[in-house]
Amino acid sequence: MFVVFEFKDKQYKVSEGDILKIPRVEKLKKDDDINFEKILFINSDSTGLRIGTPYVNGVSIKAKVIEQIRDKKIIVFKKKRRHNYRRKIGHRQDLTLIKIKSLNLSSNKKTTTKSENKDIVDPI
């Protein structure tokens, strides 16, 4: 079972309990919750396959912030030979480390409750 969602123009395929690095969200602190609502695709045992056009309405993913981190350092080194030109710059990308807590796949909103998911059992 997995879900594909979009965040800041990047797409992630996740299942519950996954840990992933996303671009830094400044205002969040440790243990804060973050919701993702741009769900592109759901493959779930209870509700089956759902393809969003482009997004599936009324479902969300809840994740917890583990830590605000910086990625491994990258050394940017530029050199032009015979011109005495060397530049060395270190770079660390700001990221947020999150853990996927729950996938709320049963639609809460009236408009999206279709016949396709009769059982309202939350898959998680």
Partner: peptide, 23 residues
């Protein structure tokens, strides 16, 4: 109007053939 990127599609094609088939 499906906006999957190529990374995800390739992943689905290789690892989740059933899902890919549906798409």
């Amino acid at each position: 109007n499906l906006t999957f990127n190529r990374k995800v599609l390739a992943d689905l094609a290789a690892r989740e053939p059933d899902s890919f088939k549906e798409i």
